[in-house]
């Protein structure tokens, strides 16, 4: 789990570094970033309500603030916002948001606003990368930092799968089907990307996804 959290954190650091160092966000999907902000905000509504550990609270805070930062850069920054590929980043996110919401309203553990929003965030996260993957496919010669970002972001849920197996074997009564199935789907969505990423990495070439 720690490795999963760290790859998640590193993915965000890599993305912020890329944007800040190159003053460019080309190849980065604003739609995916906005979906992630929505995911974090709806999942971490309990930030001020329930306290698990300093580590958890800090990470939640970092995830919300950093995705807000990335969106701010892409939308408002004088130089960076010019480099955003708006014409290419055309995924219709309503097709991800509404089904996730409806599914969360139907399949959840408890019928309460907080619980439905939390479940919504789990469902939405599993598909939030799709606009980014579509954009990558449209971009020829993806830069290394962007492909590293997607790789780290994909690895994070994959590492969580191992964590869930471990917890399931060692903790009595540890079951969370909604999270497990969504996490499996989330990781599966990356499979194709992982394949081309590792292939280009082995050959020491820039990543370019077949269209």
């Amino acid at each position: 789990r720690e490795a999963g959290d760290m790859t998640h954190l590193f993915s965000i650091i890599v993305l912020l570094l890329k944007i800040n160092a190159t003053k460019s966000c080309s190849g980065v999907s604003l739609k995916t970033q906005e979906l992630y902000l929505l995911v974090f905000v709806t999942r971490y509504l309990d930030l001020f309500q329930s306290y698990i550990s300093l580590y958890n609270s800090c990470m939640k805070f970092i995830f919300i603030v950093s995705s807000g930062c990335i969106i701010g850069y892409m939308r408002k920054h004088k130089v960076v916002s010019q480099t955003y590929d708006a014409e290419q980043d055309t995924f219709r996110v309503a097709f991800l948001v509404w089904p996730s919401f409806l599914l969360a309203a139907v399949i959840n553990q408890k019928l309460s606003v907080m619980e439905i929003l939390w479940t919504f965030s789990i469902y939405l996260e599993s598909v939030a990368i799709l606009p980014q993957l579509v954009l990558l496919q449209r971009t020829k010669n993806v830069d290394n930092l962007t492909s590293n970002y997607v790789f780290l972001l994909g690895s994070y849920r994959g590492l969580y799968l191992l964590n869930w197996i471990y917890r399931c074997l060692t903790e009595e009564g540890y079951r969370q089907w909604i999270v497990w199935i969504s996490g499996l789907l989330q990781t599966a969505i990356y499979c194709d990307f992982f394949y081309y990423y590792l292939k280009s990495w082995r050959k020491n070439e820039r990543l370019s996804l077949p269209s």
């Binding site: 959290d5 998640h8 309990d46 329930s50 698990i52 958890n56 995830f63 939390w118 009564g173 079951r175």
Partner: peptide, 10 residues
């Protein structure tokens, strides 16, 4: 079935 009540993962 039982689920961990505390959402202790991120």
């Amino acid at each position: 079935d039982a689920r961990v009540e505390d959402k202790d993962e991120l």
